[in-house]
Design a protein around this nucleic acid. Structure first.
Length: 561
RNA sequence: CCGCCCGUAGCUCAGCUGGAUAGAGCACCAGGCUUCGAACCUGGGUGUCGGGAGUUCGAAUCUCUCCGGGCGGGCCA
């Protein structure tokens, strides 16, 4: 509707130019907004104010001329000049009620688009190392990354969800040593406890399982414990599998499924790390200094150069990072989005710089990043300090157990990733029924309930008939609901484009509010049959959009609660 | 010291590629079910949009600066 109106205004502008009232056409398409105040019409345009100076005309005069030049159409009932020079449009009611027909015709495809045109995009998220259970921060990443993936799918992209983890290196060594120490009966107070050991209780469980010779199965691996306390490699492999399995279970409980797991160790096994080093040296951006090999990332915007190979000969983490992203590029992903905690933001510049140094045609802004800020957990009125080593932190599993998957997902995805998030456990526990997610789900359940009731009454009501009487949908509350339903496609498109899933959460709350107001003001199953049928059509459409939107957030849409 | 993010109602947060009188939830107050689900609805807001300056028809939104908070800044990951 917006684009149709913009086209009409463009025609009016052309007419003014032809008449000599305007010098030239603006380069951009006219901007159409939805006024907050309904007395300002259904849609408005600021074009007169934008062009006033160039036209040498008062904004209101220009607006008046534009209205006069507007071609005849069935879209707009009337338009006014208001305020400093806004043109306010009052849309024909049948245009608004037609959205019900549109939604029912489109079915589940309503709101979807094809801007991605089937192109592949990889979304990497969570990517937790297998050294402990997933915590709340990972949960935020999981909620955002998965919802982002769903949004991209809804806009026509072929999404691959990838999980990358470090299964080698020092942290994993610490893990293995910690498990070994536990297997030897030591605890963190023991004098021989590993210096940077993991102290969480889960280490004991892993040690016990190892000694018992258990077999564990994770999404990307299966392993049976060797039960040999002295075989550190075996302990390491087993511990990784155990924690991978824990994370998989948490993710499954969170309704998140990955398409692909990528192991850092594979970059060494495949020779990709060596190859990357050679390629960077060939590219001419490296130099040796103080017995170390450096990459001149400052050539591409970094604020200091980075060491690739340390004095002692090992590579810094930065090298496999570059190798990994080069691998993504080689896999054909012209578009990659990395969802990470903001504590890793400093890697963005150096990874991009490293990829530029490879000189293999990777665009400068590749890959894209979505960073989420920290999650603070409040409990008993105080902040819970997160400490992985000490093992004292709130896990994703804790949250799911306490408030449920739906509420946890909604809460973690409903706010802008850039804003720090306070998760008040007490509030979620004590008032779980007042969590916003129930408000939206309740609207959906109400839809289902009314439709159920309509069917039970013996079929004298029928949605198809309602579509012939959409003009009955003319009360203020009803029209407000129609407007919200009509907004859905642009909400999805914008959220996907801006990589901001929380737009959908906000929209759904507004849609649910409009539905509840409508529901409360008008009895669907009472009154004239034509009116009831029309309202049933509206309820059917509402239910569908609510379910569709909730699905984008990975939240269920129950028929009853 | 440098970089990124944030600062909006008592609390938690939307709104930020400039639009009209800055919004929602929670909390609090007053109403609304013999009728489709009251997990709902209706009404109730004295906010220096952290402070200041600039840009312009117009700034919570863009620029600069200062203040406050978070996170980074290692031949750790």
């Amino acid at each position: 509707m917006k684009s149709e109106l913009a086209a009409l205004i463009t025609i009016a502008l052309e007419k003014l130019v032809a008449d000599g009232a305007l010098g030239e056409l603006p380069d951009a398409t006219p901007q159409i907004d939805r006024p907050r105040d309904t007395s300002h019409g259904d849609l408005s345009c600021n074009i007169a104010m934008v062009l006033a100076k160039r036209a040498g005309m008062a904004p209101r005069d220009l607006a008046t001329q534009l209205i006069a030049a507007l071609p005849d159409n069935s879209l707009v009932d009337r338009c006014d000049v208001a305020g400093p020079g806004f043109i306010n449009f009052f849309v024909n009611q049948s245009q608004q009620t037609d959205i019900v027909q549109t939604i029912l015709d489109a079915g589940e495809t309503y709101g979807r688009s094809n801007t991605g045109a089937g192109q592949p995009v990889q979304v990497e998220f969570v990517s937790a190392n297998p050294t402990g259970p997933l915590h709340v921060g990972h949960g935020r990443g999981a909620a955002i990354g998965d919802s982002l993936s769903r949004l991209l799918e809804a806009t026509g992209w072929a999404v691959q969800r990838e999980f990358y983890y470090n299964d080698a290196g020092q942290q994993i060594n610490n893990l293995a040593l910690s498990v070994q120490a536990r297997a030897q009966g030591k605890d963190p107070s023991h004098k021989d406890w590993p210096a940077d050991g993991y102290q969480g209780g889960y280490i004991e469980d892993v040690a016990a399982a190892y000694i018992a010779g258990e077999t564990v199965q994770a999404a990307d691996r299966e392993i049976t414990a060797k039960a040999d306390i002295d075989d550190l490699d075996a302990i390491r492999d087993f511990a990784v599998a155990c924690l991978r399995r824990e994370q998989d279970q948490d993710l499954r409980a969170f309704q998140v499924v990955f398409d692909h797991y990528f192991l850092e160790s594979s970059l060494y096994g495949s020779g990709a790390v060596e190859h990357t080093v050679n390629a960077l040296q060939t590219g001419g951006h490296t130099f040796e200094e103080q017995d170390a090999l450096w990459l001149r990332t400052t050539d591409f915007g970094d604020d200091k150069n980075r060491v690739m190979r340390k004095q002692e000969g090992g590579y810094t983490y930065f090298v496999p990072d570059v190798a990994y992203h080069h691998n993504k590029w080689q896999r054909g992903f012209k578009r990659v989005i990395n969802e990470q905690g903001a504590d890793h933001h400093s890697t963005i510049t150096r990874v991009r710089a490293g990829l530029q140094c490879l000189d293999v045609g990777i665009p400068e802004g590749w890959p894209e990043y979505v960073l989420h800020q920290m999650v603070t957990v409040m409990r008993d009125g105080a902040e819970v300090k997160l400490s992985k080593r000490a093992g004292s932190y709130v896990t994703l599993r804790d949250l799911i157990d306490w408030v449920g998957c739906d509420a946890t997902r909604y809460f973690l995805v409903a706010r802008a990733p850039t804003s720090q998030l306070t998760f008040d456990v007490d509030l979620a526990l004590a008032r779980s029924n007042e969590n916003p997610v129930y408000y939206i789900q309740y609207a959906h359940a109400r839809c289902a309930s009314v439709l159920r009731k309509a069917t039970e009454t013996g079929g004298q009501h029928d949605v198809a008939d309602g579509l012939k009487h959409l003009e009955r949908l003319n009360e203020p509350e009803t029209l407000a609901l129609l407007v919200s339903l009509a907004r859905y496609p642009e909400v999805v498109a914008t959220a996907a484009e801006r990589l901001e899933p929380h737009d959908v959460a906000n929209y759904l709350r507004e849609l649910a509010a409009d539905f509840h107001s409508f529901y409360n003001a008008h009895k669907v199953l009472e009154g004239a049959p034509e009116t009831t049928d029309a309202r049933l059509a509206l309820v059917t459409a509402s239910r569908q959009v609510l379910a569709s939107g909730l699905n984008l957030l990975g939240v269920s849409a129950p028929d009853s609660m």
